[in-house]
């Protein structure tokens, strides 16, 4: 058993070669842009997710070796923060605010409606690949909830179930 493990390790391909070229290029570019910043890991992960839509788990070893961190450290950071995804999202990410101020204006019903009509739970993507549904805890729109964020920065206020259906239809049509 022990011998096998050692052999596996010896046979393991070099880190870089297991990464598809576009991913490798994106990782190296984001590292080059940020490596001189103090505490560079979070900016690098943000950049990478902005470029690829997610942080590929297979890229963590390369990031770790470039930053002189252990793979465990990088894995620990990536999985700590809710924002980072380990798989590509649907064509549009739709975030529904679950926090109290939105609850006071009907967010619980909106959440149930969204999951039901899309046929998915939070952190899942519709079968057509169009919509990924995610929870968010406050978008700073606490006076005009329920609040929904579509994509990176399209914030919507007073989203009733009917308005939500319109937004989803528009998001589907746009992608």
């Amino acid at each position: 058993m022990h011998e096998e493990t050692c052999n596996d390790f010896a046979r393991r391909p070099k880190l870089e070669s297991v990464l598809p070229d576009p991913v490798r290029t994106a990782v190296m570019q984001t590292i080059a842009r940020n490596r001189d910043r103090a505490g560079a890991l979070l900016p690098i992960l943000h950049d990478l997710q902005d470029a690829l839509g997610y942080v590929p788990p297979e890229s963590l070893a390369l990031i770790a070796s470039e930053l002189n961190l252990t793979r465990a450290e990088v894995h620990g950071v990536v999985t700590f923060y809710h924002h980072f995804r380990n798989a590509p999202p649907g064509r549009r990410v739709v975030r529904i605010c679950r926090a109290e101020a939105c609850q006071a204006l009907g967010a619980r019903a909106l959440e149930a409606h969204a999951k039901h009509t899309l046929g998915i739970d939070f952190h899942e993507t519709t079968v057509d690949g169009a919509i990924t549904l995610e929870p968010v805890y406050c978008l700073g729109n606490c006076g005009c909830g329920p609040s929904v964020l579509i994509g990176d920065d399209d914030l919507r206020a007073r989203v009733t179930p009917a308005v939500f259906d319109e937004l989803v239809a528009a998001a589907r049509a746009a992608t």
Binding site: R37, G39, L42, P43, L45, H46, F80, Y81, H82, H83, F84, V136, Y137
Partner: peptide
């Protein structure tokens, strides 16, 4: 002065 972004952790 530099801006740093959080990543969704309350």
């Amino acid at each position: 002065l530099e801006l740093r972004l959080g990543a969704g952790a309350y």
